[in-house]
């Protein structure tokens, strides 16, 4: 498999930070592949996604899109290849769902021209794919958390990019809506052969969704590979600091957290 989007030995320092939050990390995603990014809070997941999404320039190393340094690609051209959904996206009060989704067409539209039939079709498809038809005329701030997340994913989908970067798309959702969002991501990946890099907190969800799991630990890549190879008891102890039992049931990886690995911090 050839890499579509790849970080190569990147060192990353977010604006305002005094030190490199991500150090010497390489990570690639191929066409049609889902890579789940996991790691404790502050391990550098969002920072790495920002660099992959060309909004943070690496201090060392490079991010390449089909072999080309992403900083050599114009912003709009890049936005036709890679869509990034940030962790807590917000829009002004009163923006309607269809207007929000339509802004995903910006990189495809020519200046000073009305939306083309292709633009309208992409917006329609994205709204249909996330079942937002009944909500399209509603203001985004009046939606529930799950609906709102779907509206933002629809925006990224309307960009019709071969690569999708999603920063904790399940955060702050209840369990049912978490699985709902994951199922939709899997569906988008299958139907459109889109490469997805998604950061997640739930290891079972990451293992169920992704072809590969990449574990970040204190800004370094601890491991990356097939879920059953990466998600194990040693990793949970080293990276997350918990004693856990990892088992395989019905083809699914189950993680049962027992206690903090450090006895002093035990309850």
């Amino acid at each position: 498999m050839t890499a579509l989007l790849a970080a190569q030995r990147v060192h990353l320092r977010p604006a305002g930070s005094e030190r490199d939050v991500v150090r010497d990390v390489s990570l690639a995603v191929a066409q049609g592949e889902i890579v789940a990014l996991v790691g404790p809070n502050g391990s550098g997941k969002s920072t790495l996604l920002a660099a992959l999404g060309r909004s943070l320039r690496p201090r060392a190393g490079a991010v390449e899109l089909a072999g080309r340094d992403v900083w050599q690609v114009a912003p709009r051209a890049f936005a036709r290849e890679v869509a990034r959904l940030p962790q807590d996206p917000v829009c002004a009060e009163g923006v309607r769902v269809d207007q929000l989704v339509e802004s995903g067409r910006h990189p495809h539209r020519r200046a000073f021209s009305a939306p083309s039939p292709a633009d309208r079709a992409a917006v329609r498809d994205a709204i249909a794919a996330l079942e937002l038809g009944d909500l399209r005329a509603r203001s985004v701030e009046t939606l529930s958390g799950g609906e709102r997340r779907r509206a933002w994913i629809a925006l990224a989908l309307a960009q019709e990019t071969p690569v999708l970067l999603l920063d904790e798309p399940t955060a702050a959702l209840d369990v049912r809506h978490q699985w709902d969002v994951l199922a939709r991501i899997a569906r988008i990946n299958q139907d459109r052969d889109v490469a997805v890099v998604v950061s997640l907190h739930d290891l079972e969800q990451a293992a169920a969704l992704a072809h590969r799991v990449a574990v970040l630990h204190r800004g370094r890549l601890y491991a990356a590979g097939a879920p059953e190879r990466v998600v194990d008891e040693a990793m949970l102890r080293d990276v997350f600091g918990v004693e856990a039992r990892v088992a395989k049931e019905d083809g699914r990886i189950r993680v049962q957290v027992l206690r903090p690995a450090d006895p002093i911090r035990a309850l």
Partner: peptide, 15 residues
């Protein structure tokens, strides 16, 4: 209209 989105989302669509 794109400035109605947060900075990260607006730059993600190429603004």
């Amino acid at each position: 209209d794109l400035l109605l989105l947060d900075d990260a989302s607006a730059s993600s669509v190429g603004l």
